[in-house]
Design a protein around this nucleic acid. Structure first.
Lengths: 181, 181
DNA sequence: CATCACATGTAAAAGGTTACATGATTCT
DNA sequence: AGAATCATGTAACCTTTTACATGTGATG
């Protein structure tokens, strides 16, 4: 249940409406914890019921601005320091690798080559984002840069791995003859 | 809906019961696509209803051995080659990094140090697994080694990143003074 | 006056986790 | 005889995704 903590984390530094949070998610947390609009509004109401946030102001168009409460801050710190992160990572891109012997070697290499290319593109997109963010004094941006560096290293690693794996496939032909092309 | 394809992929090389698949998941796909016992049995019945697998033999204790059908193989190949992998990765470990300014610099560094250590441990565990698997001629093991190499590179990268990030935190004190320790 | 941005919600469906529930066979 | 392993299933709950649904305020 990390969406809850992502919202608390954002509200720890600012008050914000559901709509504001939606944009904050899109621009900062999207790569790490995506959330949909409908999820956010639901979660805000739940957090409010639980007393972890409160409506601090109301504005035009039914706008409700939320702020974190003392209980909310305590819950955030508890989660940050005492809850063990889940380290399960599902990857359907990597799952496909397990079954690459089901297609021809050429198709397998094409799959890996595509992965390599996309990782490279993603790397360059993150690089641009990092450059744009470099000057920002906002603590979210400062910490976001740590996460972005993770992304840069991750995409680089993936690019290199995909290249390695494609070569490996080329070197070692499939053990069992795969169905024809 | 990749669980379905994980099952098809495993059945493409062998017939297996739900129980067999459960163990195959634990020993091979666990790090890439975990599945629970209850999920597997439900999915096998769904796949069977959809005509992608069939019961090829029945054994003691109600054992049902499943095999992939032509339709199943077609679906597997379609998924492998024509369905774009989801590249959304949620990481609540990385999400915490965004909010590390909410705790003291010492606590922040401790968090990253812990991440570094755990990545190292995980790396060594994967290394052992890779060594154990190195001789296996089973195609699942051959492809599994490609995925394992990904894991080795990933954990190595994470270790290095966490070390870098901890140093970074030490160098640049928090912009806003965090709540006391 | 029209369009865009702001603003909030509900509902249904799918996927995943945890717990419950039961029983047969094999091994020591 | 008892324990471990084999073996299959259902139910409740939670999270996430997608779609539906509605309305206001500002800008050109």
């Amino acid at each position: 249940m990390s969406l809850r903590h992502a919202v608390l984390g954002l509200l720890a530094d600012r008050t914000a409406s559901g709509y504001d949070l939606m944009r904050l998610f899109q621009t900062s947390l999207a790569n790490v914890w995506p959330a949909t609009q409908s999820q956010l509004y639901t979660e805000l109401n739940r957090l409010s019921d639980a007393g972890l946030v409160t409506v601090t102001a109301e504005g035009p168009r039914g706008r409700k601005e939320y702020g974190i409460t003392g209980d909310g801050r305590a819950e955030l710190r508890h989660w940050l320091l005492e809850v063990e992160p889940e380290r399960n990572r599902r990857s359907d891109a990597l799952l496909r690798v397990f079954f690459l012997d089901q297609v021809s070697p050429g198709q397998g290499r094409a799959y890996l080559e595509r992965e390599r290319r996309l990782a490279g593109e993603r790397h360059r997109a993150l690089r641009e984002l990092a450059d744009a963010l470099a000057g920002e004094p906002d603590p979210l941006a400062v910490n976001g840069l740590l996460a972005l560096e993770w992304g840069l290293r991750f995409t680089r690693m993936q690019e290199e791995w995909a290249e390695w794996a494609a070569e490996r496939l080329a070197a070692a032909p499939a053990a069992a003859p795969p169905p024809a092309d």
